[in-house]
Simulated assay, not measured.
Amino acid sequence: MSEMSRAEADDASCIERSRRDPEVFAEVFRKHAPDITRYVTRRLGDDAADDVVAETFLTAFRQRDGYDLSHRSARPWLYGIATNLMRRHVRTEVRQLRLVQRTGVDSVTASFSERSDERLSAEASGRRLAGALAALPKGHRDALLLVAWGGLSYLEVSEALNIRLGTVQSRINRARGKLRKELGGINPLATISEEPLCE
């Protein structure tokens, strides 16, 4: 079992212990806050992200008694909470994407990843991509970005969004098709993946 798998497998027992000793929940925060922060910042920008991330962990803390301990990893649960909270910020997200579309500058990606030939080639289509992402229906954008930027599997997205696996697959396939058409045949997941963020 990898170090990451051991860490994730520990979430349920940590949450269970936190029901008796609330301070233990800080372990869940320390483990997952950096990834949740990058994901939310990537979607909403710095200003709204701080509030959403804080509210995500506050909501998780308050709902920890209802957490299903059969789910050893809290990742999908936390991404689901964050995604639900971001629904209040749809305009902010679309504004963020439109800003990247206009300027071609994505300060979040630049600050969290190293440049490579593949990244530079992806940036060449960044403006069109940002506009195409902004035009996607919210549910399709959520599913696609949880995979591409959150690093979740389709099954984890299903859990995070509380929707059927088939719905996740359908939304992602439709989003990919729309983005591929907008990007002139470029694979949209290769373009928007944030592999350095998932290290």
Rank of each mutant, 00 (worst) to 15 (best):
M1N: 07
M1W: 07
E3G: 05
M4H: 14
S5T: 08
A7M: 11
A7W: 06
A7I: 15
A7L: 15
E8R: 14
A9W: 06
A9G: 09
D10P: 01
S13E: 14
C14N: 01
I15M: 09
S18E: 09
P22Y: 01
E23K: 14
E23M: 11
A26K: 13
F29Q: 01
R30Y: 07
K31A: 12
K31D: 01
A33Y: 15
P34H: 04
I36S: 09
T41R: 14
T41L: 03
R43C: 08
L44P: 08
G45C: 11
G45H: 12
D47V: 12
A48W: 09
A48N: 04
A48V: 14
D50H: 10
V52A: 03
V53M: 06
A54R: 11
A54H: 05
A54E: 10
T59A: 10
T59G: 00
A60Y: 13
A60L: 06
R62N: 06
R62V: 08
R64C: 06
D65C: 01
D65M: 08
Y67G: 03
H71E: 08
H71Q: 07
S73D: 15
R75V: 04
Y79C: 03
A82E: 05
N84P: 00
M86S: 03
R87L: 04
R88C: 00
R91Y: 04
T92E: 13
L97P: 00
L99K: 10
Q101R: 10
R102Q: 13
T103P: 06
G104L: 10
D106C: 09
D106E: 13
S107Q: 15
T109Q: 14
F112I: 00
S113V: 06
R115I: 05
R119F: 11
R119Q: 14
R119L: 12
L120C: 07
A122P: 01
A124Y: 04
S125V: 15
R128A: 11
R128L: 04
L129E: 02
A132F: 07
L133I: 08
L136P: 12
P137R: 11
H140T: 06
H140V: 01
L146P: 02
L146K: 12
G150Q: 08
G151L: 08
S153V: 08
S153Y: 12
L155W: 07
E156C: 03
V157Q: 09
S158C: 09
S158I: 07
L161C: 10
N162P: 00
I163P: 00
R164K: 10
R164G: 15
V168K: 06
R171P: 00
R171W: 13
R174G: 03
R174A: 10
R176S: 13
K178E: 14
K178S: 12
R180C: 14
R180V: 10
K181T: 09
G184S: 07
N187R: 07
L189C: 07
T191S: 12
T191D: 05
I192Y: 09
P196R: 13
